[in-house]
Each structure stands twice: as C-alpha cells, then as structure tokens.
Design a binder for these strands. Structure first.
Lengths: 263, 263
DNA sequence: TAAATGTTGTTGTTAAAAAAACAACAAGGT
DNA sequence: ACCTTGTTGTTTTTTTAACAACAACATTTA
C-alpha cells in the first residue's frame, strides 16, 4: 500500500475494535478530509488500492459511515464522526444485548455449584470484577466482616459496597487514616499501615499498602486485593481453609499491633 | 473442530462483533455451563482443540471474561455474562470515545465545502442519518419549510425536529390525517394521500406513502424520504436546481389537488 | 469525426496476515 | 509404566490486502 500519511496506529486499532478493517478505517479517515470525492480521489488520499476502494466504500455505506451521490462518477461523503460512530455503536450494542440474553439463558442452566469449588484460590483481574466479587461477599455476610485496607481504596471502591450489609453483622475496619467523625455503623481503627513490620520482606519491597486490602467475611471467605500501581489491579479470592486461615492470622496480628500501639 | 454442540450462529456473530474470535466465543460459552473446569474439560465441552485452549483462555483472562485458580492443574471459571459483557463493552466504548476525539480533530480541519457539492444528489441510508440531515435542514431554514409526509412518519420522526424552527419561518404540512386540534404554529392540511393519482405508476405499485415523505426548505434544499417497509430506510438529499425544481412542482400539484378537493 | 487517450467501475488472481487445526514432547503426577 | 497437563512448533484454512487486466464510457486531439 502507498503512504497512508501519518495515521496514528492507535486510531486504526480503535476503529478496528469497532468492527472496521484497516482499509475501511483508512478510507473513512481519508473521506473525512474531503467533500464529495470520487472513488479515485478516495484512493489517492487514503492510499488504498483503487480497485479495493469500491468494495470498501460499499461496506462503509452499509455501515452507515458514508453517503453516495447519484452522479456519474459516483461521489462519496463521510458521515460526520459523531454520528458515524454512534451508528457503529448502535449495532454493537444491539449485539451485546442479544448476546447477553442468549448467554444468560445458558448460564442459568448451570447446575448450581456442583463440585467443591471451595478449595480453590481464584485470581480475579480488573477492578470491576473485583468489586463485583466483593459486593457478593458483603451481601452474603451473616455475622462478621473484617478488613484491613488502605484509606484511598476504602473510600473510592469499598465503602459504597458496604451499604447493604445489615446491622446484625459486625464490621471491623482497619485503615491508615480517617477524616471526619467515626461512623457508628462500623468499628473503625486507624493505624499507619506502612509502619507495620513486613517480617519476611526485604526493605523497600514490602507489600505496598497504597492500593491494597485484605477482606474476610464470616471467617469463611477471603479476598486479597492487590493494586499494582498504574497497572490493572488483581485479587485473590478463596473459600479454602488454608487461605482463610492465613488471612485470619494476618488480621489478628495486625489488630494486636494496633491495639498495642495504644490507640 | 469437533462438535461445538448447538451454538446458534447468531450468538457467535454477536460475540465476534464484541471482539472475540470463534474460539474465544466457544470457550467462554462452554465455560458458562461449568464451574471450575480444567483446561481439558474446557476442551471437551467447547470442541476447541486442547492445545488451542490454553492461549485462548489466556486471552479471555486478559479480556476479563474468565478467572483462574491457583491450583495445579489450573481451573477456570467464567465471569457471569452480565458482568463479562459489560467488561467487553467498557473497552469498546473507550475505543469509540478516543476514536471520536481523534476523528473530530481531522474532521474540523476540512476546508469548509470547497467544491460545489450543491449539484449532487446524495443517498442517505439509515433512519438516524436521515433524521440528522432533516434536523440540519430545518435548523437552516430562513423563510419556509414545506412537507408532504405520511402521518405516522410525521408523528414518530419529524415533528420533534421542527422544534427549533423560529416563528418567522412558515411551515406547511400536508399529511393524510390529523388527530386533535390544529396547531397554530404550522399550517396543516390533511388529505387522503393514497387517493392522489400516481400518474405514471402501475396500480398497486405506486409510491407507498406509508412511510415516505417529501421535504423542501427555502426552495433550495430538498429531501425525499423513502421508507421501504421493514427494510432500512433511505433518502435522497439535494441542493441541485434539478431535484429542487422537481420537488417544487410535485408539492405544487399536490397542494392544488388538496385545495380543489375542497377542504 | 475518428483515432487516441484517459477514467470509471468490475472481475479475477496472487500475496500476506490472522485464525484454526494438528503433531509432538517435556514435566510431573498416579 | 502410564496418563494428564502445559508448551512449542508446523500445517491448513479463512480473511484481508494487493495487484493485474479489461470493458464501458467519456474526453481530448488530429
């Protein structure tokens, strides 16, 4: 192919994930700079081979990204980006909707937790997924929720999820700082988490508490939120006795430390 | 590939437009029926070759559609469809947003209507695009807006677009029926459009007025809305003297007919 | 006006890239 | 000794991209 000028690779990638091929993207981009261009002009400014330009334009018309004139030769015009992208998204959202419906049906047919998945430790990627799992944990709490969690993480992502927890469930929170009054609903204890001795960790490489947290529900379900700064966060979730016990001990020792520190 | 069971082709297509490959779709679908499956089990119920299952699962984890356990052998679990599809859509919407930003910049650099595009007749596909164009026409009206339009089309799609037209612009509407009182804002004339003699058309094949309409603004810009029933609608738009004159005459003769019919 | 030239729109073929399918094997567990 | 997991590399198929050739017109030029 000729020289498609200086089209950012990112843009092509974005358009591809909206369902366009490279050629379709290049033609549409080229067309945005022109008004009423002929196929040959499109070929020239987009760098797409002339013979390929015709089928590509046909597809773009089908996708409601360009309009055609009735002259000979035909002339083409781009639908403005706002409208055009909306047109693409409409199709995609339709697909998403029908896919969700179909998948939900399959999903509901699943035998409910046949095997003992309770011995496994799961890795969950992505903030949304972690939050969803946390919400589920909190929702299922019957007696007690405990957490050791950095203040920013708590405020931004966790606090809202505690809303549906009933009063009969005791909620213990250990965090680094707490602005404002103590909420009566929860037992909040503050402590400079960074100062907690990372026993077996080499200095400077200790677990970053910045965006991390440890959660335990009813001594039965544990989640460890590992927020690698900047990166996509991940978490461990488990109902296995092993991990739960480990988390249990960790929380105990931190709690003791906090108490001893004399707050 | 083995027998992927009875997976609807539509579903695979939908998932593809959300950025999944066939394999990714099959594995995810298969995984929805299981809980904590091993790679081999995934292979068995999805029909995807065992060796291919590993890279596919990796990608699905990246796309936040499945979670992995830390056991050996690894076990995999599907994120529930609602959450999973939301995860996919989030990425796509990000791409859409950044694409729109980038494209808008390019679009604005375009020299404003360099050539005389006013001689061309454009075909516009898709209801949204037609409505957008109509809205633009109405917005630019300085003296007069005339339309001959089926009642259903008028109510559902057109009336709302007339909102921003100032009082100084005269708006004439001819339609088949009009329930309720006459709006003082517009000059509405009703007429059973079907009865208008389709001069050169064979009976039964005359232009269906059901979802069609003719629009003229300031005697300068014309749009013909052709609503093929059920299909995607299309329209002609032009500022060319030829088409404008044709529409002008058509409106005139209909208006005369209506007047003669003695309303 | 007729020949020469050029452009548009089509069709068919080849090349490159991406996805799918298969083969083989080391590591570890039973 | 045997089976399973996870990994790697190779072949086949499908999809995109690139190229070649040509008929139908239209434009220029002699």
């Amino acid at each position: 192919m000729k020289a498609p000028r200086d089209i950012s690779n990112d843009l092509l990638e974005s358009l591809r994930s909206l369902g366009l091929t490279k050629y379709e993207a290049l033609v549409y981009i080229g067309l945005l700079r022109m008004t009423g261009a002929t196929a040959t002009e499109v070929h020239e400014t987009s760098g797409v081979p002339r013979a390929s330009v015709y089928p590509v334009l046909d597809r773009l018309v089908q996708k409601e990204l360009v309009s055609v004139s009735h002259t000979t030769p035909k002339r083409f015009d781009a639908i403005p980006p706002g409208q055009g992208i909306e047109n693409l998204m409409r199709r995609i959202e339709n697909d998403a909707e029908s896919a969700r419906t179909a998948l939900d049906r399959l999903y509901r047919e699943k035998r409910p937790e046949a095997r003992g998945s309770q011995e496994l430790i799961w890795t969950i990627y992505g903030e949304e997924n972690i939050r969803a799992r946390l919400a589920g944990m909190f929702l299922s709490a019957e007696r007690r929720v405990e957490m050791l969690v950095a203040q920013n993480l708590l405020r931004e992502h966790v606090l809202a999820l505690l809303e549906p927890v009933p009063d009969s469930v005791r909620v213990d929170i250990v965090t680094d700082t707490w602005k404002g009054e103590q909420p009566s609903r929860f037992r909040v204890r503050t402590h400079p988490l960074g100062a907690y001795p990372e026993t077996h960790a080499p200095p400077g490489k200790g677990l970053r508490h910045e965006s991390s947290g440890v959660f335990l529900v009813d001594d039965a379900r544990a989640l460890v939120w590992m927020g690698s700064s900047g990166e996509q966060p991940s978490a461990l979730y488990s109902e296995s006795a092993g991990l739960v016990q480990f988390v249990r001990r960790y929380l105990n020792s931190v709690t003791e430390w906090v108490a001893a520190a004399g707050q």
